[in-house]
C-alpha cells in the first residue's frame, strides 16, 4: 500500500518551489550540495516514517533515471 503522498499538498506550490530555489541562489555547487544534504536529513526526520522514506527514495531514483 502506498503511503507516500504525491498529490499536491501546498496551497501555492510555486511558493514552495521558489523557497527552495532561493535558498540555493548564489551558492557554489559544493555549498548547494551541503544545503540539499542537510535538507534531506531534516525533512526525512520530520516525516519519521521508513515506509514513506523508502517510497520517496524509489520515486526519486525512478525520476533521476529518466533525466
Amino acid at each position: 500500500m502506498t503511503k507516500l503522498s504525491t498529490s499536491s499538498n501546498f496551497v501555492k506550490p510555486d511558493d514552495a518551489f521558489r523557497m527552495i530555489l532561493e535558498a540555493h541562489r548564489g551558492l557554489e555547487d559544493s555549498a548547494s550540495h551541503a544545503l540539499d544534504t542537510a535538507l534531506v536529513l531534516i525533512l526525512a526526520n520530520h516525516i519519521g516514517d521508513l515506509d514513506v522514506l523508502r517510497e520517496a527514495i524509489a520515486l526519486a531514483e525512478q525520476s533521476a533515471g529518466k533525466q
Binding site: 550540495h33 551541503a34 544534504t37 542537510a38 536529513l41 531534516i42 526526520n45
Partner: peptide, 23 residues
C-alpha cells in the same frame, strides 16, 4: 563524496538538533 557530505551535515546539525545527535 556524498557519504562524506551526509556525515558532515549530520555532525553540523547535531550541535543543535536531537535527531541528528542520534544519527
Amino acid at each position: 563524496a556524498q557519504e562524506a557530505r551526509m556525515r558532515q551535515a549530520i555532525l553540523a546539525l547535531a550541535k543543535d538538533t536531537e535527531f541528528a545527535k542520534r544519527m
